[in-house]
Write a protein that binds this DNA or RNA. Structure first.
Lengths: 231, 231
DNA sequence: TTTTTACGCTGACAAAAATCATCTTTATTA
DNA sequence: TAATAAAGATGATTTTTGTCAGCGTAAAAA
């Protein structure tokens, strides 16, 4: 399924919205649509990227695997997000891998086109800057949370974030399914600790689980856990 | 001690190096030099900043205090770094406090002047973008390290970083003194765990300590600890 | 200088989380 | 559909880290 960037609504969700007609035409002429299957790499840690990937559909994780097999997820990227942006800007190899969590549709935009827009379109550069600054703030918050909150708190916070990001299906469950291992990878703990924390939240009737699916039953309480007001 | 930005060599260390003569004149005319005493706040979490602080001399920590009194340090900022940049760019309140670790000399640059340069000088914006991207990469690495490395590894890594950043005095000790509590705050652990880890490294003869001062005796081994090659 | 306060250090103990093992259930694919 | 693999769940145990208490030393303030 090919289509023109000019008509792509996804664009509105990221820095590409600042592109003008010329930029869009140029980029659209060179971009390549790709389908990526669940579990496949979009790119791998250490790779030198020669472009970025604009997510049209699907969800991916940006993560780093440790020697002992633990996969720390730094970010979940969904529709509208641009992957590899940072590495392309700084012209370094990626320090993270991007893996598809379900089947994905992405557009590959060559580095040269991006650089051209950065060099000739100040609005685009400003937009990138804004987005980078906002991502940095999020990253700083994660650092603080990892140090100051325990696993239960971090999981409660993640659940609220996930419902917010993926909204709910018609039965009230979070609209995207993650394995317990991925959830553990996001909050930075072991799979077992993650499972136990979820089981505890279920026993406390703050959530309902059915297989991998999770429904938030009491968001006030979950937030109170995050804030350390209750245990 | 007042002086003109035009002649300030500190500028070369940050995005301000991309400013042109006009920018510099304008900013220099409005900037205010400030002296900040050890322990004092440059700004506090939640504040809406109406400008940034360019560090001319001294060292500060960017951190967030938790309810239980634990202070997580997200970044150590030294000569040449610009504090508050991100909050000013995104026009939000800071989520971190900046506290002087020794007596400091900083220049306050009003937000309006910065915004003006961002809007009229694409080179400056590009430079800011590059820096922000590089900071984001660092932050991502910290997240991964917090999740995948234990206290001993994180402390070993910090020591190598500190020697690299502050170099050594004539006796070979790291050229900046931190309290054990601040070191704990950087690696995200409790003061006692930090002290114990340092004592252990000392007993292992990988470092020498004398009061608060720390000398690295075996950087190869320290790096091996970081990499998980030895315990 | 003296006094006070902050900091470094250590032991004892508690809590949190990691690891290992095992079993069940759910997906995948042959 | 049956076989196989992947993921969930839970118990037992170890390791790591946090917390509390107390003591000595060094730095800062009176």
């Amino acid at each position: 399924m090919e289509s023109r960037c000019e008509n792509c609504i996804i664009r509105q969700l990221n820095a590409l919205k600042a592109l003008n007609r010329n930029d869009l035409k140029r980029i659209s002429d060179t971009k390549v649509s790709k389908t990526i299957k669940k579990g496949d790499f979009i790119f791998e840690e250490g790779e030198k990227l020669n472009g970025v990937f604009c997510v049209r559909d699907g969800v991916s994780k940006l993560s780093k695997m440790s020697d002992n097999g633990k996969d720390q997820i730094v970010k979940i990227a969904t529709k509208g997000e641009v992957l590899g942006q940072r590495s392309v800007i700084t012209d370094e190899s990626t320090n993270l891998s991007a893996i598809a969590l379900n089947d994905m549709e992405v557009c590959f935009i060559p580095k040269a086109e991006l650089t051209e827009s950065v060099n000739t379109n100040p609005d685009f550069t400003k937009e990138l800057l804004l987005q980078m600054a906002s991502e940095l703030k999020i990253a700083d918050n994660i650092i603080v949370n990892m140090a100051q909150k325990n696993v239960r708190q971090r999981i409660a916070e993640l659940l609220l974030y996930l419902e917010n990001t993926f909204s709910i299906d018609n039965e009230g469950y979070i609209g995207m399914i993650f394995t317990r291992e991925d959830i553990a990878g996001i909050v930075g703990t072991a799979k077992e600790a993650c499972i136990r924390a979820l089981s505890k939240l279920k026993k406390d009737t703050f959530i309902i689980t059915e297989g991998k699916r999770i429904k938030l039953e009491n968001k006030q309480k979950l937030q109170a856990i995050v804030d350390g007001l209750i245990d």
